[in-house]
Design a protein around this nucleic acid. Structure first.
Length: 545
RNA sequence: GCGCCCGUAGCUCAGUCGGAUAGAGCAACAGCCUUCUAAGCUGUGGGUCGGACGUUCGAAUCGUCCCGGGCGUACCA
């Protein structure tokens, strides 16, 4: 819709012999200024050194001729052109929503393009903790946003199973196992303290007795724990409706020699050097403080080298768009990884990295501590159990990724109007209620009647339609920025205008079938947009509450 | 010290490729249920947009500096 209007304005500008400008066309903050406001005259005036209002007046006069589109065109302020769209445009949008249904809002802007989204990527050293939830839920929403904009999306999970952390995991389980037999057996200093480790040790002891007491090779412990950890991680993800297409293991990159070859490549390019028995990647001092170790003096690569090889692997798989989601604790390291990828001769323009800030949890006024050291960690499972999958998803996606998130567990649990997720869902439940009542009180024949658009010309109905008509533009712009929290702001507008409409416009009325049928269609459209939006951010659309 | 992110109403936050009178939810206050779910609607109060300077017709938005908070600054990931 915006595009159509924008093209009309561009035509008018061209026909007047004025230069092409990249102007903005946005709904003004103040509704009294109309539906859309263009700043083209201000920009043209700047370029031509003329009075903006003069130019605006010329363009506005030409636009007035398009009266099938505009009911009002006026010049305001410093030279804005304010447009009020013809109501017929909006009534036409209703037909579009009804016919497209679950596809209304999808765009083919990226049709035929393949994208890879990598997220979660927690190493299988333990269950996901509540803080992981932000990335988990953000990624879920971003993946569907990308699909709505036309991408074919591969959801991918990368995990480091070759390095130190997995050795620590094995040592930790082994130590807990040994402690079942020798209470003073030492626990590794940087071992994993969670209760789940003790549980694994107990189960191993039950299965194997003390036959593994003098193991030199801890791979049984490692494999046992890794498998259980992954099972639990996957089941947590499943409760949120997340299923990755690819689980990519670091070990793979050793097996297929990608890491070895990359190291040789750096060496042959003179991009790396050896110091203190370690291999260092030579970094550009303008961007980095110092060189970075890629192979430790022990001979083991640091996480950076496999990460670089992994990103090259993804590039080679032929994606048009590669997106990574990391926490802010990786804010510097991803730059090092991309630098390595560039140094190896690959372009990184197609890679976008989303960094999200950390989460703090509180319960009302009490802060909830997330200690990694203690045995009792607040796991993501626990959070989902406490507040439900919908509230979990909603609260994590509600805020922009690059701001700190303050997660109020008490509020998320609240089954009342205080909880922001219910405002949206309630709108949908109300619509479902109307349709339940309609089915009871009216025959199918009546409900399927052709409807008369003109009967929807009340201010609340038109306002609702205006909001609904903005959905495709909204999805497209949010998909371009990959900021799903904006969908929530938009859905709030939908819910608000629906609630208003509902309050002032009785839908079901046996004495006025014509209006009933027309209003039902509008409700159907509102329900469709809510459902589609909920689908993007990943929450359910309840039939009743 | 250096790098990245943040600082907007009492609270949690939108708005940030410069645009008109800075918004929402919660909290506070005043109203609205014999009619499709009041988890709703209507109205009121509430702001030196962390601070200072600068750029310009115009700054919450851009620049510089300062203050405050988070995360980095490993031969951990």
């Amino acid at each position: 819709m915006k595009e159509v209007i924008s093209n009309i304005i561009k035509d008018v500008i061209r026909k007047r012999g004025l230069p092409e400008v990249n102007f903005s066309l946005e709904p003004p903050k103040n509704k009294n200024f109309g539906d859309l406001s263009a700043n083209c005259a201000l920009l043209l005036a700047k370029a031509a050194g003329r009075n903006p209002r003069e130019i605006a007046a010329v363009i506005a006069a030409d636009l007035s001729a398009y009266d099938e589109y505009f009911s009002k065109v006026e010049v305001a302020g410093a030279g804005f052109i304010n447009l009020t769209l013809n109501e017929k445009i909006y009534l036409g949008v209703l037909d579009e929503i009804l016919s497209k249904g679950g596809n209304y809002g999808k765009s083919d802007a990226n049709k035929g393009r393949k994208a890879n989204l990598e997220w979660v990527s927690a190493n299988p050293t333990g269950p996901l903790h509540a803080g992981h939830g932000r990335q988990v839920c953000l990624g879920k929403a971003i993946a569907s946003l990308m699909e709505w904009s036309g991408y074919e999306v591969t959801r991918e999970y990368y995990y480091n199973d070759a390095g130190n952390q997995m050795n620590n995991l094995a040592k930790s389980v082994y130590a807990r196992y040994m402690q079942l037999y020798e209470t003073d057996f030492p626990f590794p200093e940087d071992g994993y303290h969670g209760d789940y480790i003790k549980d694994y040790a107990k189960r191993i002891s039950e299965e194997k007795g003390d036959s593994l007491k003098n193991s030199d090779d801890l791979s049984y412990f490692k494999n046992f724990a890794e498998k259980r950890n992954f099972d639990r991680i996957k089941s947590t993800l499943e409760t949120l409706g997340i299923n990755h297409d690819v689980f990519f293991s670091e070990t793979e990159l050793y097996k297929n020699k990608d890491i070895e070859n990359l190291l040789a490549d750096f060496n042959s390019k003179g991009a790396s050097r050896v110091e203190d028995d370690a291999v260092w990647l030579i970094m550009d001092r303008k961007r980095f403080q110092k060189d970075k170790v890629i192979v430790k003096s022990s001979g083991e690569p640091t996480y950076r080298l496999p990460d670089m090889a992994y990103h090259i692997n993804k590039i080679k798989r032929g994606y048009d768009f590669i997106v990574d989601i990391f926490g802010s604790d990786h804010g510097d390291t991803y730059k090092e990884v991309l630098y390595g990828v560039e140094t190896a001769g690959y372009k990184t323009e197609g890679i976008k990295v989303i960094i999200h800030q950390m989460v703090t949890f509180r319960s009302g006024n009490e802060s909830v501590r997330m200690s990694k050291r203690s045995d009792n960690v607040y796991y993501l499972d626990d959070l989902i159990k406490d507040v439900g999958a919908d509230a979990t998803q909603f609260f994590f996606v509600m805020r922009a990724a690059n701001t700190h998130l303050d997660f109020d567990i008490e509020l998320a649990k609240e089954q009342s109007d205080k909880n922001p997720v219910y405002y949206l869902q309630y709108a949908h439940a109300r619509i479902s209620g109307i349709f339940r009542n309609a089915a009871e009180n009216f025959s199918d024949e009546v409900l399927r009647k052709q409807f008369n658009h003109a009967l929807l010309a009340t201010p609340d109905a038109i306002e609702l339609l205006k909001v609904l008509s903005g959905f495709p533009d909204e999805v497209e712009s949010v998909a371009a920025s990959l900021e799903p929290h904006k969908i929530i702001s938009y859905l709030n507008q939908v819910a608000e205008s629906f609630h208003k409409f509902y309050h002032n416009n009785r839908v079901l009325n046996a004495d006025d079938i014509e209006t009933t049928v027309a209003r039902l269609r509008l409700c159907e459209a509102a329900g469709t947009v809510l459902r589609n939006g909920f689908g993007i951010i990943g929450i359910s659309a309840p039939e009743r509450m």
